[in-house]
Design a protein around this nucleic acid. Structure first.
Lengths: 202, 202
DNA sequence: AATCAAGCATACTACGGAGTATGTTGTCAA
DNA sequence: TTGACAACATACTCCGTAGTATGCTTGATT
């Protein structure tokens, strides 16, 4: 019964991610999302208190996909280069698996403040921001560590950090899913991007 | 009189770029833009036939900023490495100068199809896409040339191309203008990003 | 068997925003 | 000086959409 509920919720989240991705989260209406589910508004408002809350749930889920996969990699006492490469590879692979969610996230990379948001929605947004910071710091630490040890060239930490992270997110912009050899294709892209990410730091 | 007209138009474009940047092009209303000009809708609709046309004008202006600066660099018979570095440096510098416009562009990197667009607006969008393709090909040619000559590592051309271009656009995401040492700051960022762009290809 | 709530659907309201129709002012040309 | 047009402002209309209030159905519980 609890599983029924969460499965219905994630089904809504998946549909919302797709609609937000295709039309943009401002243009896509709740009715659009409901229609893509073969349902009506009632179903969505039963699970989410507002459109902003639904959007935040999509964004949070996107971040947690990545955070849950990459966090365990950090503490394995490898060299900065190998650790970063592992993180980058895993990041790209997971991005490609859950692409619609991350397309939505990138729509909101800059546009933080909507026109009218409630306190509750602002709280959700700040929670998302906290997770994003957490994730960013994983990379910041590795970069600082690598620059200190001489594995990486010493650059402005902020410029390097953002550039690398954005490069790892680049498939969100251009990747189009194919049917054939999907897994292999994903791995190849992840491998190349991980190589480039490491390369641009040396 | 003609100058008066174009100056009023570019003034509107600047205001639109700022509003679109801050609120997102879907949320920002024509009234918002007019208000930021101390004017009303009438002024805007006198110069632009619709909101979509105004948005397209902003996007087109953004691309032309860059295209006009970078295109002349290509044909100077330098090595691929030096040419690419020059292109990248110029690109970043111009991006930083005209930041609001490019923030708007990036909001629409994926979201091509709005909900209801007229034929005229679709024509504007296809013209923008053509310019974007033109610009992309400048880099594609240099990359192919450099991979052939051995200056660059042979990678998937598409992956490398998009990654480099996105890296050069990365300040659009994180850069916040300061008052102090602005020009110097711009040049330093451009230099670092150009270095990284070249580095990740070797 | 009756009750009750979860999980929706249906039918409404309210409002913001795009677009339009029309009015107003300044400027230049004949 | 007048008429004509550019460059706006003002005052509307109309429609889509977020949100709500309420009704319906089904399965679990007592």
């Amino acid at each position: 019964m609890l599983e029924k509920k969460t499965s219905s919720k994630t089904e809504i989240l998946d549909a919302a991610a797709n609609c937000f991705m295709e039309l943009g989260s401002d243009v896509a209406s709740i009715d659009d999302i409901a229609r893509s589910l073969g349902a009506t508004k009632g179903r969505i408002y039963h699970h989410f208190s507002s459109k902003g809350a639904l959007l935040s749930a999509v964004r949070m889920r996107a971040i947690m996909f990545i955070l849950d996969e990459v966090t365990p990699i950090v503490n394995n006492s490898e060299t900065p280069i190998n650790t970063l490469r592992d993180m980058a590879y895993t990041h790209v692979l997971k991005i490609l698996e859950t692409l619609p969610y991350h397309r939505v996230v990138l729509q909101h990379y800059r546009k933080n403040a909507a026109k009218s948001t409630t306190d509750y929605e602002r709280k959700l947004i700040s929670e998302i921001e906290a997770k994003r910071q957490l994730y960013e710091n994983l990379y910041r630490n590795i970069l600082e560590q690598g620059m200190k040890s001489g594995d990486f060239i010493k650059r402005d930490i902020s410029v390097a950090l953002h550039s690398v992270l954005l490069m790892l997110n680049s498939p969100v912009f251009w990747f189009t899913p194919l049917k054939k050899n999907q897994a292999k294709n994903h791995q190849e892209i992840a491998s190349q991007l991980a190589d480039m990410a490491v390369a641009c730091l040396r």
